[in-house]
Write a protein that binds this DNA or RNA. Structure first.
Lengths: 132, 132
DNA sequence: CAGCTATTTAGAACCATTATAAACTGCAAA
DNA sequence: TTTGCAGTTTATAATGGTTCTAAATAGCTG
């Protein structure tokens, strides 16, 4: 299994559940956005055994902490995650809450001129809200 | 009262509660960021009568819909609002969750090259996450 | 002033997320 | 292999921000 090493290298035990969640999250043609509920549904569809909701939350947070997932800063009642961990941005369709990737190359270079004392920039994320 | 007209022009009845919330939100030297809980506390400190939490939620949402407040897209368990409704951006201090304004002039012009069919850009918001 | 609709209110309901604590499991050491 | 233990999983309860409800109240227009 190709995810065993990945997990072990991060100090995460390659449990059956984590490996199955890896399959759902990372063994795909394309990256995608999801909420925990959407992921839960995807997991139900793809695997036979049940993974408890608590484990899904735990795993997603563990993966996010290790940098295998990113949280998308959007105001919604649910938290959105992204399996695309490259530097990039998002369109946010206000009508239906849909998110669309916006590659770095589709946004001019962003130069933050203001500095904050003693702080480093960890990420720069652009959210482009869309309306009709 | 200077807020009566503002409210009436928006189709909102200038009730005692709304006018008092206007005072707290807009009669200030500087704009500021807040969560509903923080606003509730501020209101308690500044006025004698009680305003119910439901009214605070209703009013904040009404003001946001009318464009007198902006929601700040940040992942937090609470929703952040901003009384600064000009086009601008934010630093987000990951350590303590603090938000700092980042004026448009402190960010180079942002040119979104990708177009989405049939959609208009409503806003472009940059979130700069800070770490130590 | 009358009557109508918008608004306020306390409290209940909702629901995403987190906490709990008991059962289970991967794994290293013997 | 077996043992022991820390790391995980699990069902369920708890939490807490937000929204809903329905009754009381308050602007506003005629």
């Amino acid at each position: 299994m190709k995810y065993i090493e990945k997990l072990r290298n991060s100090g995460l035990r390659p449990t059956k559940q984590r490996l199955q969640i890896c399959e759902v999250l990372f063994n795909t043609e394309r990256t995608f956005h999801f909420t925990i509920n959407e992921l839960e549904q995807k997991i139900k569809d793809k695997i036979d055994n049940k993974i408890s909701l608590a484990t899904i939350y735990n795993t997603v947070h563990a993966f996010e902490k290790k940098g295998y997932l990113k949280q998308i800063p959007v105001n919604s009642n649910q938290t959105y995650f992204d399996t695309n961990i490259t530097d990039h941005h998002h369109f946010y369709n206000l009508k239906d809450g849909n998110l669309i990737d916006l590659e770095n190359s589709d946004v001019g270079p962003i130069n933050i001129k203001k500095k904050i004392n003693g702080k480093k920039i960890k990420s720069i994320e652009v959210l482009v809200k869309l309306e009709d």
